[in-house]
Amino acid sequence: MKAASFDYVRAESKREVLQLLHEHGEDARVLAGGQSLMATLNMRLTQPKVVIDINRVEELNRIRNDSGHLAVGAAVRQVQLTDRAELIREVPLLAKALPWIGHFQTRNRGTVCGSVAHADPSAEIPLCLVTLGGSVVLESLKGKRREVPAADFFQGLLTTDRQPKELISEVRFPLAEDGTDYHFQEIAMRHGDFALVALALCLRADGAHLGVGGVADRPVARTLPLGDELPDALNTLAWSLGAQDDVHASAAYRRQLVRELGQRLIEEPSHARTR
């Protein structure tokens, strides 16, 4: 199908983006990598009046490592992070999760912030952000710049705390901590598809912090005990997510994946499949 008509603005600066969002609010859509937005435009699921292209805004194309986190700007593409050799030391969980996002052809254009804005419950980047306790920075022309913890930002299926006039200017991933190992794992119907269940793990000597994507309507992270208490804790976690039956998998299968994959990832993380 073909998109309905819209005005197109290729923004030159962040200020221009904020100005346009201020003027048009809900009638405007930010165009980042287009790997989700373009499909919804082509299918006419969204029919904005104005599309604001941020792809050439240089000041949004920045990656900064400072004060304990890696800040990734709105125009930074997923491939820029997979190409970043230091990432495996800076944010190892993200480095392990990125190859699971779609395909190299979609990572070539898709942005990190776009994935956070889109808030698909199966998406890998929101899952990492929530599991690590990262945050989302929102800016608007008139309002105050806000930094929202990831756990509060994601509010449900494709629903976030972002207000219509706000731009996600960057997202912040906490840097790796000593004494913690990071692992990622997921199961999908086809190679590169959205996950049925995705797991992000921060493993310490005294416990496991496990994030689950693809089951609840948003990513959820919990701290679990190790050893004999783990199976029960995983079972409680699996039941707490409100899994639903859909065409891809039954709720029972998703709960089983959380228990089984979770147990294996925590107890034998080195056996995890990589992509």
Partner: peptide, 13 residues
């Protein structure tokens, strides 16, 4: 030089 899906880009881009 970067492999991209041309249905997910606008001509103006």
């Amino acid at each position: 030089g970067v492999a991209s899906r041309s249905c997910l880009m606008l001509a103006v881009q």
